[in-house]
């Protein structure tokens, strides 16, 4: 093998890589926050919400979970403008990630909600809590605690899946790697470096989510 690896370009392209990392981080922060919010709303509808809305949410969840993220992205970015919804690459990427995580987290959170014993609802009602208070304090928070590990790994999966947004020219880390290799023709090295960065991001994100879980549910655990 005569190929010699060359990583001397890293210094020159560091700003490009860092900008890509910044966009990827922004995408997953926005995607995780609003995705889980959407998933919570959908889980509430599917488990306890109005009957006529349940099949609508069910169809949304099945549709998203059984099609590739890349196609969802293309449909939103290329397909929706023909209906008059025009958006930037980043907006489309954000929307696709929110819609995608929303469907997965809906199923995860619903499983948590359905594992809540019936008596908990009645206990909440007997303490004169409103249905919304009961849902929030008695059902949702303990459910989230129960399913936090599953939700965390789904968020990491969505972060790794976000590499596909480079295909609609959203300037994330993968886009940076594409850009670098188109300039210096060091394709393997460029993708190797960004793969290592993704691995690092995934490990950090997993730790952050574990920490967030411990922080969010610390008071409960102390009270128990």
């Amino acid at each position: 093998m005569t190929y010699s690896f060359d990583f001397s370009w890293i210094g020159e392209y560091l700003p490009v890589l860092l900008k890509g990392v910044g966009i990827t981080v922004e995408l997953i922060l926005v995607g995780a926050f609003f995705g889980v919010a959407l998933g919570t709303l959908c889980a509430w509808i599917r488990a306890l919400g109005p009957l006529w809305l349940r099949p609508v949410v069910g169809a949304y969840v099945e549709m998203i979970r059984n099609t590739p993220f890349l196609i969802q992205l293309f449909f939103i970015f290329f397909g929706l403008p023909s209906l008059g919804f025009r958006m930037s690459e980043l907006q489309a990427a954000n929307l696709a990630m929110i819609v995608n995580l929303g469907a997965y987290s809906c199923e995860i959170i619903r499983a948590g909600i359905q594992a809540t014993p019936r008596g908990q609802f009645e206990a909440g009602a007997s303490l004169a809590m409103s249905p919304i208070q009961t849902f929030w304090h008695v059902v949702l928070i303990p459910s989230l605690q129960r399913i936090w590990p599953a939700l965390s790994s789904q968020i990491v999966i969505v972060m790794l899946g976000s590499a596909a947004v480079s295909q609609i020219a959203a300037e994330d880390l993968t886009f940076a790697a594409n850009f670098i290799q188109s300039r210096n023709f060091r394709a393997f090295e460029a993708y190797l470096v960004s793969t290592v960065i993704y691995l690092f991001l995934a490990i950090v994100l997993r730790q952050l989510l574990r920490g967030a879980g411990a922080l969010l549910f610390a008071k409960r655990r102390a009270a128990q």
Binding site: L160, A163, S194, T195
Partner: peptide, 13 residues
């Protein structure tokens, strides 16, 4: 812990 897309690129190149 790494994107499938990156694995595809690395396999390809």
């Amino acid at each position: 812990g790494t994107p499938l897309l990156m694995q595809l690129f690395l396999a390809f190149f």
